[in-house]
Design a protein around this nucleic acid. Structure first.
Lengths: 136, 136
DNA sequence: CAAAACTGTAATATTTATAATTACAGTATA
DNA sequence: TATACTGTAATTATAAATATTACAGTTTTG
């Protein structure tokens, strides 16, 4: 699983944690121990899909577009990581019936698998993540 | 998902395809368009878990330890890729309640998720893979 | 108005992960 | 005893992820 996903969940959970004020990329970056530019890139994706809103300029930053209860991990996964479950396959080899088809065959198994996995992720919201973090 | 998994499934499917004779790492490597040493490394894992047997020397190679109908993709996943679903998380940050716990919280979500995903993979056997490849 | 604190994004450099390659010891076959 | 294999370690090459630098554009605030 790519790290965009965990950074996105991390960021959204932080935003849920302080709903009163916008969080800057530096603030989030420090919490997640990564570079601010990386945060801005990930959050740019989330913004494109209207999970968050951003505001430029002094005192600006990021806020949630929706209630934390209504954003699921599956929503986040779809934005940041769709397709990454797929196993990397070598090039197709037309000279071998197995080599020619394996990529496609595994591809369909993993597409279904992603759907099943998605139903699991859909059970958890950003509000759940925050609660789990705080009560630990 | 790491590529060991797809190489392992590819190899096992090839072995199922020609049950009468042992397949060499070079033969498998050519079918999968990768380097023979890489195949030997992956198959070494499968051998350790008794999915296959190997024979050294001229005319040697690899054969299945069990019927293709009895080896599932979940068996293979467990040997080659267990834990790889887990999203990469940055270092824990003790100064932030979210940063301190996110890795652990996501970890448990993904452990359960891997289990759900595993039940899906467990529905498919190497025999199924071969059939899908050949009838395409 | 000008300085400060932000986002947005591109370009580059660094680090890490994957994969290929080389090398060679050991084993069975013929 | 030459040949065709496995097993594995060490090295090199390539690709992917990440950090860093740079800077233009946007608000806020003194």
């Amino acid at each position: 699983m790519n790290s965009h996903f965990s950074l996105a969940v991390h960021s959204l959970t932080l935003l849920a944690h302080q709903p009163e004020k916008a969080a800057s990329s530096s603030f989030i970056a420090e919490s997640a121990s990564v570079h601010p530019v990386r945060i801005r890139k990930v959050l740019s994706l989330l913004k494109q899909h209207d999970l968050i809103q951003s505001k430029e300029g002094a005192g600006g930053g990021f806020v949630l577009s929706h209630l934390p209860e209504s954003i699921t991990l599956w929503d986040v996964y779809q934005v940041t990581s769709k397709g990454t479950l797929q196993p990397r396959c070598p090039d197709e080899n037309p000279d071998c019936s197995v080599g020619a088809n394996m990529k496609h065959v595994l591809g369909s198994v993993f597409s279904e698998g992603e759907h099943v996995f998605g139903e699991h992720l859909d059970q958890f919201t950003i509000a759940d993540m925050l609660k789990k973090c705080i009560t630990n």
